[in-house]
Design a protein around this nucleic acid. Structure first.
Length: 894
RNA sequence: GGACGUUUAGCUCAGUUGGUUAGAGCGUUCGAUUCACAUUCGAAAGGUCGCAGGUUCGAAUCCUGCAACGUCCACCA
């Protein structure tokens, strides 16, 4: 043991954290296969770490993920389970590529991709991604994350590529992946398609015009985007709309701003007759809705906007080459001149923009790869306990059943509704992207021929230049990291046979991530996993909220309101940062965070440090104390005072409840409970008593060891450090305290101690408020005090009381007094002589005024037969007790 | 337009299947201070639990309606 006196008065995290982390790592405790024997035999517990994007640094969201998952991992490790926390990073395709492009442009390049070419450009991206990866790893370590980076995975490494190509091929063979010419979300800035989830909407003011294509066209339509109208091939009206019934089925040729267009009038239920003129110009090439309508009515596609957001030749010679905005202005002018413009108004419109970059997203038709979510396919294996091999289902049905059946549980559970709602609205998923950084589509073309696979098939074959949506690969994360596809096969009965890590850890125990990526990632993982393995990827889904600044805004670089975890750690210590991210937040709820809050938890860390320092000093001063093997009341046992019993009972209660709360993912409540016990019960009460009642070293040690264990998942560094100072080793793999108190039967109810606490509080208050010096104690006794040991204890407590309240004289009970006066007595103090009568009276009157209505209403209630007959016994009894208490108090006051 | 949340002390938030005088931390005010810790200790003040109904012996908690705020989805052409 170190020399306790020489330990600093304030805990200094920066001097110890690195060394502690290194020791854990060197001892292999992050590696599931190097854990102690009891863990190796324990039930596997697995979490895949949501791989941070390789786009720079970790932010608070990641830090929160690390904090929460590390609590879970450390907790289960201490429980004796075989814990595997799978670490990794995400290539984040478009985000990373865009980031690198921006950097290169800043460095002076005009068109980095054109100037460098695919391979050289990718080289730059990889270099950047590697740097980001190194940052992320060291930041996860700084946060105390106990994952084994030797087992690191990457969404873009060889093994993950194999998984991606395998799923792609299987899905293609099952008809779930197809290449099709459909309307896509097109980002003209980065020249790539986007999935529906990568499109955001911004409210802008737009000009909404009502017009006819030309003078002779019989139906007026409305739009905010007249430039797309060159691509109109139909006008749609509601089938029941009397106004237009006569036109339905007819085809017109119109001259729209100098370009001849053919318009068929169709009837479709999708049209809202109340909106605008009740007639809709159908532009199949530049609207998802119109595209679907065109499929139903077999309408032709005319593309008038190209991939640079310029007008094509289809828009006529006068318009070809103009930007959409230029074309729009020109058309408005022409329509006005021609007298075709009927109305022009300003409306609020939701403009689709790209999640990255923010450029307006165009809808244009393109030949792309799609995952079909509504297509029935033949299952390759028994799935989710519902479908047998060979039966048919859709991906949507699989996704729904995974959660519906409870095989994956969502926390908080209202996210299940959100999830189902999303599934119901889900459309086919466009998975190909025109960017370079990512998994290249594993398809080769030679004329009309096509081959699926990663390897070059030979002379004349050319590979699809596109890459896959980053979520296509991250959707496989739970099983691609555990050895799939090699570790799985399907037996004759249609069951999936898993081996190796896949067999041991899949389905994983819990997925913990930010609630903002439930669709992007959580849902995609369920899709991929139920398809590929016929089982769910994880049993529980815990979604945490976003971290906001003090004013409730999202933290962002541009607002300059973000708190960097890496700046906070050296300032306040990792433990404080972790606590601030976990405490005061409940599942799924957003959380406001300020530096002030982190500071408060630094103070608590220091409190725990000083509690430990004090206890260590006690132990050091009296090292020969026997260990705590107390059997209350037994021969030769160490006698327990009331305070001892009280603290041990509280401790037992706390450890039981904390365990339950962590199991229920109620981390904040677990932490609050522990903090309350540590600060109020232990530091403010028990340690004060221990200063006068000597010989408590065994109990102090036991209590400290227990709370250090309970705190370890939350604050791993300070606890491990204290653990070491106590002469122990490797708290990280210590056994989680069981809820059984080491002191067996014989502990009588410690509620007497509560009486003593109340008394001490009263004395303090009297002194503080009125300057009263209680003259002496009289009538000392404890409820049911009919044995000598309790009398002795009460004497100890009185001494403590005297010390705490600086009493001038103390009269202790004479030996045998309590037993002589049998029965129930009260513990009280005599303050006669020094009381300020007026103040005392006013106070008493106030209290009486509060008590009286309570007593009255309670009496009335207890007199009510209806209440008595229907309320549970327990409630009635507790009311009676409280009433009696209040009545006694009232009597005393009067 | 649809869905999902939130509304509790000055601020940030707990409140576990409805249980009887509603809790914590911070802040405020007052007081303490050699004795583990000023990154400390004690005490006080502060709430008709968003509003209106309903169910119940009993409601912050369940139901209905309303309001404010927030998030997500759809995209109105």
């Amino acid at each position: 043991m170190q020399e306790i006196d020489k330990l600093p008065k304030a805990y200094d995290p920066s001097s110890v954290e690195e060394g502690i982390f290194k020791a854990w790592e060197d001892n292999g405790y992050f590696d599931p296969d190097k854990l102690p024997e009891r863990n190796l035999k324990g039930e596997p517990y697995c979490i895949v770490f949501p791989p941070p994007n390789r786009t720079g640094n970790m932010h608070l969201g990641h830090a929160k993920t690390v904090a929460i998952e590390d609590i879970l991992i450390r907790f289960h490790r201490m429980l004796g389970r075989k814990t595997y926390w799978v670490p990794g990073t995400d290539h984040a395709a478009i985000s990373t590529q865009v980031k690198v492009e921006q950097i290169l442009i800043k460095q002076g390049m005009k068109h980095p991709r054109v100037e460098l070419g695919r391979e050289k450009f990718l080289e730059k991206v990889r270099e950047f991604a590697q740097g980001s990866r190194d940052n992320i790893v060291s930041q996860c370590k700084a946060m105390g994350g106990s994952m084994d980076w030797k087992r690191e995975k990457y969404t873009l490494d060889t093994e993950r590529n194999k998984a991606v190509n395998t799923v792609f091929k299987l899905m293609y063979e099952d008809g779930l992946i197809e290449r099709g010419n459909r309307v896509v979300n097109w980002d003209p800035q980065f020249k790539t398609t986007l999935s529906d989830d990568e499109v955001l909407y911004k409210e802008v003011e737009a000009t909404f015009i009502t017009f006819t294509y030309d003078k002779d066209f019989p139906i007026a339509i409305s739009t905010t985007r007249p430039e797309t109208k060159f691509g109109d091939t139909a006008v749609a009206v509601h089938p029941d709309d009397e106004r237009y019934r006569q036109y339905v089925g007819k085809t017109y040729t119109a001259n729209f701003c100098g370009k001849e267009i053919k318009i068929k009038v169709i009837a479709d239920h999708e049209v809202d007759p109340e909106f605008g003129t009740g007639a809709l110009g159908v532009t199949p090439a530049h609207s998802m809705i119109d595209f679907e309508m065109a499929l139903r009515h077999d309408l032709p596609l005319v593309q008038v906007i190209d991939q640079d957001a310029h007008m094509t030749v289809e828009a006529g010679a006068d318009f070809a080459g103009l930007t959409t905005v230029e074309a729009r202005e020109k058309i408005e002018k022409l329509l006005t001149e021609n007298g075709c413009l009927i109305k022009s108004e300003k409306i609020k419109q939701n403009l689709p923009i790209a999640e990255r970059g923010g450029a307006p997203v165009e809808s244009i038709p393109m030949l792309q790869w799609w995952v079909r979510v509504n297509k029935k396919f033949k299952l390759r294996q028994n799935t989710l306990g519902k479908w047998k091999k060979g039966e048919e289902a859709t991906l949507k049905e699989l996704m729904r059943h995974a959660v519906d059946s409870g095989q994956t549980r969502m926390l908080p559970d209202n996210f299940e509704k959100i999830y189902f709602h999303w599934i119901d609205n889900l459309r086919d998923w466009c998975i190909s992207r025109q960017i370079w950084f990512g998994h290249q589509v594993p398809v080769w073309y030679k004329g009309e021929d096509m081959k699926i696979g990663n390897d070059f098939p030979g002379e004349g074959w050319e590979r699809d230049p596109d890459t896959l949506d980053t979520w296509f690969s991250s959707g496989m994360w739970t099983f691609s990291t555990l050895g799939w596809p090699d570790a799985a096969s399907i037996d004759a009965a249609g069951n999936v046979v898993k081996s190796g890590e896949l067999g041991e850890y899949h389905p994983t125990s819990v997925l913990e991530t930010g609630r903002d990526i439930i669709f992007m990632w959580v849902a995609r993982m369920i899709l991929m996993t139920t398809y590929a393995l016929g089982e769910v990827p994880f049993k529980d889904t815990y979604l945490h909220g976003l971290i906001l600044d003090e004013q409730g805004r999202k933290m962002s670089k541009s607002l300059g309101n973000s708190i960097e975890p890496l700046e906070m750690i050296p300032k306040y210590g990792t433990d404080a940062v972790r606590l601030s991210l976990v405490m005061g937040s409940s599942p799924g709820m957003d959380q406001k965070l300020s530096e002030e809050k982190i500071k408060d938890f630094r103070n608590f860390t220091n409190k725990l440090w000083n509690i430990s320092r004090f206890i260590l000093m006690q132990i050091e001063n009296n090292p020969t104390q026997p260990p705590l093997t107390v059997r209350g009341g037994e021969e030769g046992s160490q006698s327990l005072t009331l305070a001892d019993r009280w603290i041990l009972e509280r401790l037992a209660e706390v450890q039981g409840r904390v365990t339950k709360l962590i199991q229920d993912y109620q981390f904040s409540q677990a932490g609050e409970l522990l903090r309350d016990f540590t600060w109020s019960d232990l530091a403010d009460w028990y340690l004060e008593i221990a200063k006068v009642e000597k010989g408590k070293e065994a109990i102090l040690r036991h209590v400290l060891e227990t709370i250090i264990k309970l705190w370890h998942p939350f604050m791993p560094f300070v606890t491990e450090y204290i653990w070491g100072l106590m002469g122990n080793k490797d708290l990280i793999v210590a056994e989680w305290p069981s809820a059984v108190i080491p002191v067996e039967a014989g502990i009588q109810s410690a509620s007497e101690f509560e009486t003593v606490r109340t008394l001490i509080t009263d004395v303090r208050r009297l002194r503080a408020e009125q300057g009263v010096e209680p003259a002496k104690f009289v009538d000392v006794c404890l409820v049911g005090a009919d044995d000598h040991s309790l009398v002795r204890e009460s004497e100890m407590i009185i001494k403590q009381l005297a010390r705490l309240s600086d009493l001038k004289s103390v009269e202790t009970v004479p030996e045998g007094w309590a037993t002589a006066v049998s029965g129930t007595m009260t513990l009280g103090i005599d303050v006669a002589g020094t009381v300020d009568k007026e103040k005392e009276k006013a106070k008493a009157e106030k209290e009486i005024a509060e008590l009286k209505p309570y007593i009255e209403s309670t009496r009335a209630k207890l007199a009510n037969q209806d209440f008595i007959s229907k309320a549970p016994e327990k409630v009635v009894q507790s009311m009676k007790d409280k009433l009696a208490e209040a009545e006694a108090k009232l009597k005393a006051l009067e």
